[in-house]
């Protein structure tokens, strides 16, 4: 597996969205490749930093209705 392919999968791995063989491929590659190991560590840290410190507001409840009103008005 190439470095770019692994780096593409790291976020999914950290979010628990990877399973089985793919997850194992990421683990193996990160053990052997210093660059990807660094990327893995940084991703883990920054992902936590952003999720814990940024405001992550929910959209207003009536957003879909407001969009439909705009769409129908523009038609």
């Amino acid at each position: 597996m190439s470095c770019i392919a692994v780096q593409n999968l790291i976020s999914q791995y950290l979010d628990g969205r990877l399973e089985g063989a793919e997850a194992e491929l990421v683990r193996c590659h990160v053990r052997e490749c210093a660059d990807c190991a660094q990327d893995f560590q940084d991703s883990q840290f920054l992902s936590r930093l952003l999720k814990e410190n940024l405001d992550l507001p929910e959209p207003p409840k009536d957003l879909p209705e407001s969009v439909i009103r705009t769409v129908e008005r523009d038609k």
């Binding site: 780096q7 593409n8 976020s11 979010d15 920054l46 992902s47 930093l49 952003l50 999720k51 940024l54």
Partner: peptide, 9 residues
């Protein structure tokens, strides 16, 4: 990259 986990490409 780090909040939404989007692929680099």
């Amino acid at each position: 990259r780090y909040l939404e986990g989007v692929k680099l490409e």
